[in-house]
């Protein structure tokens, strides 16, 4: 795969991982899904999924570049991804509902 595709995938994956980590938290879950909090199991699952996805982002970075470069790309990608997720949560939180496909959208 060309490096550009790998890097775009890595950035996207980093955002995905950060979003799931955010959704594992009560306050952000409420922002996205309305009132209910995630059950402890769901919360744990989301956290696991989030960390696994961030790890996948690292693997994509390592596939694209030499290790030293890849670690830098990953570290910076995490920062940018976290800010992106935070901004989505402040302005368009409902967008993140697509990351919980098993949940039917709750009516407001």
């Amino acid at each position: 795969m060309p490096d550009a595709v790998l890097l775009i995938a890595a950035l996207f994956t980093a955002c995905l991982g950060m979003a799931w980590l955010a959704l594992a938290m009560d306050v952000h879950w409420k922002q996205v899904c309305g009132s209910a909090s995630p059950s402890p199991v769901i919360s744990k699952l989301l956290r696991g999924l989030g960390f696994a996805t961030l790890l996948a982002a690292l693997l994509l970075c390592l596939e694209a570049d030499t290790a030293t470069m890849a670690v830098l790309v990953w570290m910076m990608a995490l920062a940018v991804a976290a800010v992106t997720v935070a901004f989505v949560l402040s302005w368009r939180p409902r967008l993140l509902a697509v990351l919980l496909p098993w949940r039917r959208p709750t009516a407001r």
């Binding site: 980590l21 938290m25 306050v27 952000h28 901004f87 949560l89 402040s90």
Partner: peptide, 9 residues
């Protein structure tokens, strides 16, 4: 960690 993603504009 609790406010890692928190921004309330």
């Amino acid at each position: 960690f609790r406010e890692f993603f928190t921004f309330r504009p």
